[in-house]
Simulated assay, not measured.
Amino acid sequence: MDRHSEQREAVPGAAERWYARLLEADCPDADRAACARWRAADPAHEAAWRELDRLWQHSATAARHPAVAAAALRALHYTPPAPWYRRQAWLWPATAVAVAAVAVLAILPHWRAIAPAPGTTYSTAIGQQRSVNLPDGTTVTLDTQSSLVVRYDAHERSVDLLRGRAQFSVRANPQRPFVVHVGNGTITDVGTVFQVRTDKDCTGITLIEGELDIAASAPDHATERVSLHSGKQLWFDRSGHISPVQPADLQAAEGWTEGKLFVHDWKLPDLLAEMNRYNRTQVSIGDPALDAIRISGVFDSHDPHTMLQLLQRGWPIRARADGSHHVVLLNAARNQRAARPQKL
């Protein structure tokens, strides 16, 4: 087994240890904050945490069953051969309220075997976009470099957006909500068209039609909730703060699904960052004076060469090839001999 495989195998165990620690009533704020940082550090960490939380929530009902209560009592008196949760004194509950927690801790090493199915993963590579038809008639369009996991059960249609951006055209079913889990937030819907984009800093939601309920959680478990209506957008960050609701640029929102970037007064670095998401050819700025240039126009997201030609014709920019898949933008005004566009 290679190092990366070992790291993937270790993630569920780490999630189990964090979850058990946070179950303790005397768990300090520092540990809760450390757990929040661990979850935010990698989409796989957050996915493992959510799977474990799903099991815990399901156990809340099961714990009231007499057979489970008896198993909990047996767990209190059984001494297995020193697994990790027995070696840590701080894991032991101090009150009868924690009996159900002991039962769950006793089965944590096996939670992956009895948890709901891991779901179906859909992903896209650089420059790839993909449309997926889900069993209930919902359609998901994945943008470049995106990944999500779909889990359906009798009560809920659940999606974990792990990275990138996706558009959801949801088939209405009020008895079976459609819930997108992303970062530290959830988006609940019964039948709309909306987009979600996530990165390391924040998550943005654009509602094309319908209504959404959005919740974002802070590291201390405080939760903000907002309802979003058609033609609006918002963002939430890792701290759980939700931005004010704003009008959405629906032309830009719908454009990426057709391979177009509708750019309205963007800074040049923002345009390049967006184009770089779709292409092997990466474009960077080699002169800080270009950072302040504002760009408007329509660009084919998969055609960086045409974008470079347009930039050189409309702005004081010179493009210089730097390797087979890298282009540097320079200030043409600093070198009049480079006034005409360079053929790349």
Rank of each mutant, 00 (worst) to 15 (best):
Q233T: 15
R294C: 05
S217R: 11
F194D: 05
I295S: 00
H65I: 12
A62P: 01
G314L: 05
M275Y: 09
T206M: 08
A82F: 15
I107Q: 14
I126Y: 07
I285C: 09
F236P: 03
P135F: 04
D29G: 11
V68F: 10
V328Y: 01
L344W: 13
R294V: 03
Q129E: 14
S59H: 09
D265P: 01
I293N: 05
M307R: 06
P43R: 02
I317W: 02
T223S: 04
P12L: 03
R151W: 03
H326V: 03
L134R: 07
K200I: 04
S243F: 05
L234P: 15
F168C: 12
H302W: 09
P244R: 10
L105C: 12
R176E: 05
R337D: 12
F194W: 12
R21E: 06
A113K: 13
V245A: 14
I208K: 15
H264V: 00
R112S: 13
A321L: 14
T121I: 08
A67V: 02
D31E: 13
E46S: 06
T79Q: 14
Q88R: 09
Q145P: 01
E6H: 15
L329N: 06
V226K: 12
A332D: 09
P116T: 13
V150K: 04
D153K: 04
V104L: 14
T192K: 04
R320F: 07
A101F: 01
A62V: 06
V179I: 14
C202V: 01
G314Q: 07
A69H: 10
A333H: 10
A292S: 14
Y122Q: 05
L76G: 02
I295E: 00
P135K: 09
R86H: 11
N335K: 11
P43A: 01
R17H: 12
W56K: 00
H181Q: 09
V150C: 06
L161H: 02
W256I: 06
A319F: 06
N173W: 01
T257I: 11
A289Y: 04
R313M: 11
R151P: 00
N279K: 07
G191S: 01
F178S: 04
I295M: 00
Q195S: 15
E274R: 07
D26K: 10
E209W: 02
S230E: 13
T79P: 09
A106D: 13
L344H: 11
A333Q: 14
R197D: 11
Y278K: 07
A218I: 06
T186R: 03
A34I: 01
R64D: 11
A14C: 00
L207C: 09
G137P: 05
V283S: 01
W235Y: 13
V193I: 11
E274C: 04
T120G: 05
G297Q: 07
A333C: 09
D2E: 10
A292D: 12
Q309N: 12
S131M: 14
N335Y: 12
A252P: 00
S169C: 10
L23M: 13
R130E: 04
R151N: 08
W92H: 10
V182G: 02
